[in-house]
Amino acid sequence: MNLEFNEDQIDTLKEFINISMGAATASLANLLDAFGTMHIPKIDICNSNELAQKIESTIDLKSMYYATKQLFTGRFGGECMFIISEDSAKNLGRHLYNVTTPSRDDINDAVIELTNILTSTIVSRLTQELNTQVQFFVPSSQFIDANSIVHCEDVSDYSKIIIISTILDFKDQKINGNIYILTKDEAIESLRVLIDKRIEEIYG
């Protein structure tokens, strides 16, 4: 299977994610009654054993994090991972629950809700274009230190993975986190078909 993407394909994938992320940010903005700043997504196609390193480079290794993962299955299947620092998660809990000191349960629920909205919006948008269906699973959240996020990522079964990462950023509310969409094998193929179709449409 050819898993290399050329420059045009990566550019197109970025634009897809950008548009999906726009929808996700709008959903969250609506929910939080806030304004989110959009960031340029990053695409990494790498070997699965490099994932830990990629994540490590985007977070502060001394902090505690809520790491939430959500699985989605179907022709375009994979995992969405949302990593948010303890402080950001607390702020999220505060805003979502309108309380000054949210409990651990409140924070967990808020983080899960956020992940769900992000995953659903981004992946739905992609699958809509792919003309396929996905099923979403309940996200599960863990409160862990940075090193454990990296360690617990055992993805040795995956050969090549695509890491799509971007930042969720609500400046006024001091909420920001990193989003990773991890897909492999057939999902990458599906993605390529979609991308090529889009390129064909635009470039003719």
């Binding site: 548009i19 726009g22 709008a26 304004f35 959009m38």
Partner: peptide, 22 residues
């Protein structure tokens, strides 16, 4: 790609003629 209402309000206030989603 930003489809937040707030974004639209901001750019209109800054002088843009209109804003469309990608």
């Amino acid at each position: 790609a930003d489809i937040q209402n707030e974004a639209k309000l901001r750019v209109l206030a800054a002088g843009a003629k209109n804003m469309y989603p990608k």
